[in-house]
């Protein structure tokens, strides 16, 4: 293949992409550590952690974060508990309607989530579940299912049957084979699906707003209200504080998920 010798065009593209992709996030990073940043200075005139102290000292900030952590942990864990066994079944067991059911989970992806949440909100309104912890958990589990079915199913499918057969052949019971061989083999992908779902739910505005608000204020709802405020730094600090650790976690999962795998998961 002809590969261009002079990377000049590449460099320009890289610079443009760098500015476009990283510029917005960099701005937030700078704001989070800026004490004074007035127009038209390109950089803040005073740096510091002042607003970190402001934010962390406020119970109206800490509470939504704790609420979000609790909601997200419960929803993601419950979703994992029901989805991972299902993924194993889809990958390894023969049962009637297997293809159709697996497909229905992936196809649920094709419905805009916001309209789904509207329909659920109306039902929950009648049932009095709007603004309840478990109401939000249920809806967030729905968001998690997307990641928790197809990634683990692909992971279980990717384990060569010979690995399990070898254990079975050496005298292990089927449970032992699952516990000692199948599960450890699938673990990296299972963990990746957990992290992906966790972060997605943690930052999900739509479900929290339609099902949770106003009684339950989650971290993304707090960010939504802070974003419109005059004091820029507060939302910036919140962004950096919550998103950066999540980003680091997500980067870890990349090792276990190939680009091709993601593309295939979306039907490419």
């Amino acid at each position: 293949m002809r590969r261009s010798k002079t990377p000049f065009g590449g460099l320009i593209l890289l610079a443009a992409m760098g500015l476009a992709m990283l510029g917005p996030i960099m701005t937030v990073m700078v704001w989070a550590f800026a004490v004074k940043w007035r127009y038209p200075n390109l950089v803040p005139s005073e740096w510091g952690l002042k607003y970190w102290h402001v934010i962390l000292g406020r119970s109206t900030v800490i509470e939504p974060i704790l609420t979000s952590l609790a909601l997200t942990s419960v929803a993601t864990t419950l979703a994992a508990l029901i989805c991972w066994p299902a993924a194993y079944a889809f990958a390894r067991l023969q049962f009637p309607g297997r293809q159709l059911l697996l497909f229905s989970f992936i196809a649920a992806n094709a419905v805009p989530k916001f309209t789904l949440f509207v329909s659920i909100a109306v039902v929950f309104l009648q049932l009095g579940m709007v603004g309840t912890f478990w109401g939000v958990v249920m809806v967030q589990m729905l968001s998690a299912i997307l990641f928790m079915i197809w990634i683990p199913t692909a992971a279980f499918r990717g384990i060569p049957p010979a690995l399990e057969e070898a254990g079975f052949d050496l005298g292990a019971s089927r449970l032992r084979v699952f516990w000692s061989i199948t599960l450890p083999q699938a673990m990296p992908a299972l963990a990746a699906s957990y992290v992906l779902a966790f972060v997605a739910i943690m930052f999900e505005v739509d479900s929290a707003l339609l099902i949770g608000a106003p009684k339950i204020t989650t971290m993304p709802l707090l960010m939504l209200s802070l974003s419109a405020q005059v004091i820029v730094q507060e939302a910036a600090v919140l962004c950096v504080m919550i998103w950066v650790p999540c980003f680091a976690l997500l980067l870890l999962t990349r090792r276990f998920m190939s680009s091709k795998g993601i593309a295939q998961g979306f039907g490419a």
Partner: peptide, 20 residues
Amino acid sequence: RQANKRPTAMVFQSHALWNH
């Protein structure tokens, strides 16, 4: 009898070692 109850042991073409 199932495989785990038979006095046989098998070497697979793919060696099937557990890399964990």
